[in-house]
Amino acid sequence: MTSAQTTHAHACELASATFGVVSRGQLRQVGVTRHQILTHVVAGRLRVLGTQAVHVLAAGWWDERSPIVAAVLNAGDSAWADGESALMLAGLRGWRHGRAVIVRRRPSSAWWRNDEWRGPRR
C-alpha cells in the first residue's frame, strides 16, 4: 500500500464515525501532514470545509448532519452542537432546520457583563 493509499485509508476510517467530516488535527494525529492533505484535495479525494474541517469524499457520507460537524470542528476545541443541531446529530429524523446551532465556552481571560463582551481583563 502506497503512502497516499495509507493516508486515504486513515482519513476514511476517521470519517466513518463523523458523517464524512474530520478535522485537520484528527488527521495529524494519525500521521497525515498538511502537504498530504493538500495533495488529496488537489486529487479530489478530500474537500476543505473551512479552516479546520475536511470532508472525506470516499467515506460516502454527506447528509444534513455533515455541515453541523464541520461547523463544530471549525469553531474550535471548546465548541459543541446545541439545540436542534445536537438532536440531529443524536439521530432525530424528519426535522428541517435552518442554521447549525454551535456553542463555545467563554474565554476565561475575558470580562463579561450581562452577556456583553467587554474585552480582555486588565
Rank of each mutant, 00 (worst) to 15 (best):
W61A: 04
L57Q: 07
A79S: 14
Q52G: 12
G76R: 10
N74F: 11
D77A: 15
G50H: 06
A53F: 09
A58Q: 09
R65V: 04
A79M: 11
A59S: 11
V72H: 05
V72L: 01
N74I: 10
E64F: 08
A58S: 10
V54F: 13
V72N: 07
A79F: 11
W62I: 00
P67K: 03
N74V: 07
G83L: 13
A71Q: 04
W62M: 08
A58P: 01
H55E: 06
R65S: 04
S66N: 03
S78F: 09
A79C: 07
L57F: 09
W62Q: 04
G83W: 09
S66A: 15
G83M: 03
W80F: 12
L73W: 01
A70K: 02
N74T: 13
V72R: 02
W80T: 13
V69W: 01
V54D: 07
R65W: 01
W80L: 09
A53P: 03
V69M: 06
V69K: 10
L73P: 00
A81G: 06
D82T: 06
S66H: 06
E64A: 06
A59R: 01
A79K: 12
V72W: 05
E64G: 08
A58F: 00
G60M: 07
I68M: 08
D77F: 14
P67N: 01
V56G: 02
V69C: 00
A75N: 08
S66W: 06
L73A: 04
D77K: 14
V56Q: 10
L57K: 05
I68K: 05
W61Y: 13
W62H: 08
L73I: 02
Q52T: 10
G50N: 08
H55N: 05
A79H: 01
E64W: 03
G50Q: 07
A75P: 03
H55Y: 04
H55F: 08
E64I: 10
A53H: 05
A71H: 08
A70N: 07
W61I: 04
N74Y: 13
G50E: 00
T51V: 08
E64Q: 12
A81S: 03
D77M: 11
D82V: 10
G76Y: 14
S66M: 03
A75H: 11
R65H: 09
N74Q: 11
A59E: 00
H55A: 09
V54T: 10
D77W: 07
P67D: 03
D63Q: 01
W80Y: 01
A75V: 09
H55C: 00
G83S: 06
A81Q: 09
V54K: 12
D77G: 13
A70D: 03
I68C: 10
W80V: 01
A75K: 12
H55P: 00
G76E: 14
S78N: 11
G83K: 11
L73S: 05
L57E: 07
A70I: 05
A70E: 08
A59K: 00
A58N: 02
A59T: 06
N74L: 02
W61H: 15
A53D: 06
D82H: 15
A81F: 13
W80S: 10
L73R: 00
G76L: 07
W62G: 03
T51M: 04
T51G: 13
Q52R: 15
